[in-house]
Design a binder for these strands. Sequence first.
DNA 1: GTCGTCATGTAACGTGTTACATGATTTC
DNA 2: GAAATCATGTAACACGTTACATGACGAC
Lengths: 172, 172
Amino acid sequence: MSGPKSGYDLKKDFEEQISHFWTESLGQIYPALKKLEKENLVTQKVVRQEARPDRKVYTVTPSGQQLFRDWLEQPAAPIKWRNELLLKVFFGTEMSTDAVLNHIVQLESEQKGVRQLYQYCEDEIDRRPGSPERKLYWKLALASGRHINKARLAWCREAKAAIHDYIENQTE
Amino acid sequence: MSGPKSGYDLKKDFEEQISHFWTESLGQIYPALKKLEKENLVTQKVVRQEARPDRKVYTVTPSGQQLFRDWLEQPAAPIKWRNELLLKVFFGTEMSTDAVLNHIVQLESEQKGVRQLYQYCEDEIDRRPGSPERKLYWKLALASGRHINKARLAWCREAKAAIHDYIENQTE
DNA sequence: GTCGTCATGTAACGTGTTACATGATTTC
DNA sequence: GAAATCATGTAACACGTTACATGACGAC
């Protein structure tokens, strides 16, 4: 985000700012930067350091910025679903009800942790420097995660109740 | 799901039953079935048909079922996030507010369509034959989608309001 | 006549993760 | 003394999609 960055810097940015909705590994970033340089979308500058490996700092070129903006305005690709937990719940008939409940309880406690993380992140945004516009969009992206998180927790409650209901009607 | 199936059958099952949280292409399914057969987790049976290509029908072996059950009870892998729309919103500072709003409005109308689809699916489950247990888990998996859908729509409303708010405070 | 469905599969390509390799410095 | 951090990168592998190929049938 804004300003010259090395591949390593980018990875850290991804992790702390947008890991909630996007992940990228170094094995992708380094080759990508090389490719972008070949296409003149970024330029490289080697910054020598003492007692530390050289940093290769990249800056986006005007044509790179143009391409980025064009990409930004194009409609986003739909999300591809790959939710292993739901797949397992779907096949719940092949397990004991306890095993299914286990999955749900695990998701629930995981999501309770996520909820706290979001709270912390939102406070962080306020504390950090940045323009109101920057903060607005950062918060919006976070807010989406918060809504999804809430939805997951609501589902956990509902799912637990539905399974308990089923068990009771079964034993009657 | 239950009973011998061909690769083609599987693809259709994936599409109509679990496409909301899992996708799989034929280019994955056919090689996978071959591999599973080599490992004795499924057996193949060729069913000749007239005026139609032969069907290769696969049945899960006992050891395949055991492995499947073991897999089911193991904790699910966490979801990897790749939400292009949120990534674009996050970089909203590089676009006009209108362009950002466009993305949100598009998501909103898409999700309104999804909402109707979920309603239809839930009615379908009731209409179709199946054990109460089978229906329970199918509905639970669907319910998750419904919650997430609702969360997305709520976020759209919130996001639109936040951006409009920002615009108003800007022009003052 | 063209398109979609049934039914299989391969091959090319693109995407993404993980492990490995280097090597000094700092922290526990 | 071990592990994490800084910083780069490559290579092997695994995962996934798409296009292609075949060929008959039925619907429009």
